[in-house]
Design a protein around this nucleic acid. Structure first.
Lengths: 345, 345
DNA sequence: ATGAAAGCGCTAACAG
DNA sequence: CTGTTAGCGCTTTCAT
């Protein structure tokens, strides 16, 4: 007698309560059409039977899953993690669940992952640091699934996005360094071709230009947005015969790597060389030295993007491009240079 | 003419190809029963039509969603984030998607979240640092959904779990401190009643007992597993008239908070006081000073737990309790004490 | 190798 | 206020 047991369904409850499925359905949804007592009785029975209505059955008819898909490069990246906290909180608040997937910053994986979301019929999708950006439009239009991008890395604007205003922030950071007396300021970027990197580089460049500082290309190095890449790039910079007195890093992880490399070269930051980050991760206060950086409102960005997506889902109109502003956070990794140019003292 | 458009379904493809739904279904699943040419033709048509089969329709009949639910306290916690990376990678590898939810370490929210997972008919559930532990058993047994816990915080063993072997690791850490010459060693814990905390405390206690060190209760303080709690607890410890020479912290976040408090009290670590963490978060190398800690194989734990869950789903038998071992990582936050007891020098 | 038919669990007109 | 009916998109016997 190996009968396959199936979880109790709405029919079981209907039978137990001596009513129709519709009545059960309505009672459980709190429909005002149902007699209060019957509704109560049904709820009691359902509860006693341990009945948990199936969202998949429901979704099939309502064509809504109350689920959003979010794709990150990797959730181990603390920037992503903080944005996702904001997303999950806002989504949950509105009754949505979140499907999470990692793309490892590969366009291929990103596409696969979005397709798996589509197959699962998510109501909307959120992509952080997308490599594909505008290329989604055809697919998503066809599927009628709204998409919003957070810090789009694809070099074309996307219809719905929330982004940090990179250039002004990066420029403010560089100007701060210039005000401290630096003239020879290097830049460690992200992978080539990423949009945030391009914009942050532009901000850096603008500040230099406005200050009338002309710098050779040997002062810009490419990292990978992570500690390792930052350390390597910094290593290359420190092999230069004519050292920079400061370096603007693409983000905090890069800066942490640069910090490591500086230490490995027996350089003391900021005495021997100044360094700045971008993001303001929670660790910035506790690195050695604490990092001067730009604060991105990470949770807020997650929340804003989720809000935009929910607006789209509800057919409400909304601002399609949200730019948030960064904020300079001065800590201890930048100080006036010992000598105005970078000749080792 | 405001016709509601619905996404193309299997029927549309069947009609377009002049075959039945069954044939389309089989062709798309790569069933060997279908003529190779028809199958190819159908696939082409489906692709051209941009047809994406609905997992919700499929799930309704197969009673499988290929989804697992994972609940964390908060994904902003870097420990959680690293475990989740491992989970997502392993799940994805096996064709599963992950639903992510945050419990904020509240038993109430944890329960709500698990129920929402059940409603969505996830195939299995993974809970990190669960506050509810064994209390799930009835619900999940009824729903026939396997659950595995990672670092269960509920003070009873749970049927399926992967856990760090806390006591030996914590004891090794404390013994290391004793070997350095410390006698007055404090402990900053987590919220009271959490299992990991109790076990780590026990390890600490064992080491002291074996060394014949008797310490008063004023040397154990409670934190909250986060930076703020660590800082506060350390503050209280540093108000003692007779200071400890070393403090064992529940985890790295706590230790980072303790580091801040020490700095605020103008104490230099490890010269004035030694400090240890637990977890080995990626930042440990870059704090000031770098943290001596216990490494937890975080991704591996995520992967192991996912593997166990998949075994359960497949009806394979598996080791129900996996314990992984921590590893002492010596860095620079602990050193021999200046004076053997903690009288301020 | 293919089709017809039934049904997964639920909701939503529509009727009463 | 409640029941009947149909159908969401798919898979899966069972025939053929």
């Amino acid at each position: 007698m190996n009968r396959i047991v199936r979880p109790t369904s709405i029919k079981d409850i209907a039978k137990a309560a001596g009513v129709s499925c519709s009545t059960v359905s309505r009672a459980l949804q709190g429909s005002p059409l149902i007699n209060h007592e019957t509704a109560d009785r049904i709820r009691r029975i359902a509860h006693k039977a341990g009945y948990v209505p199936s969202a998949v059955g429901r979704s099939l008819v309502t064509r809504k899953t109350n689920t959003i898909g979010v794709v990150v490069t990797t959730i181990a990246d603390p920037f992503m993690a903080e944005v996702v906290t904001g997303i999950e909180a806002a989504a949950n608040e509105a009754g949505y669940s979140v499907l999470l997937a990692q793309s490892y910053a590969e366009g291929g994986r990103e596409t696969i992952v979005v397709e798996s979301f589509l197959e699962r019929r998510v109501d909307g999708v959120l992509v952080l640091a997308s490599r594909m950006g505008a290329r989604y439009t055809p697919l998503l239009t066809r599927m009628r699934v709204p998409l919003v991008l957070i810090n789009n890395q694809f070099p074309e604007p996307f219809e719905h996005s929330v982004e940090i205003d990179n250039a002004p922030a990066s420029r403010a950071l560089t100007e701060y360094l210039i005000r401290l007396g630096h003239r020879r300021i290097a830049y460690i970027g992200d992978h080539l071709g990423h949009q945030s990197d391009a914009e942050r580089y532009n901000g850096y460049r603008q500040a230099l230009d406005l200050a009338g500082i002309a710098l050779g290309p040997e002062l810009v190095a490419a990292g990978d947005g992570r500690i390792e890449g930052g350390a390597e790039a910094m290593g290359r910079l420190l092999d230069l015969s004519h050292l920079p007195t400061a370096v603007v890093c693409y983000n905090d992880m890069t800066a942490i790597g640069a910090l490591r490399a500086a230490r490995a070269h027996s350089l003391v930051v900021p005495r021997d060389i100044s360094l700045t980050g971008f993001d303001d991760l929670f660790i910035c206060t506790d690195t050695n030295p604490p990092l001067t950086t730009i604060r991105q409102p990470k949770r807020r960005m997650g929340q804003l993007a989720t809000g935009m997506l929910l607006d789209l889902l509800a057919g409400r109109k909304c601002e399609p491009h949200v730019k948030v502003q960064g904020e300079l956070v001065v800590r201890e990794s930048a100080a006036p240079p010992r000598s105005p140019d970078g000749v080792r003292g």
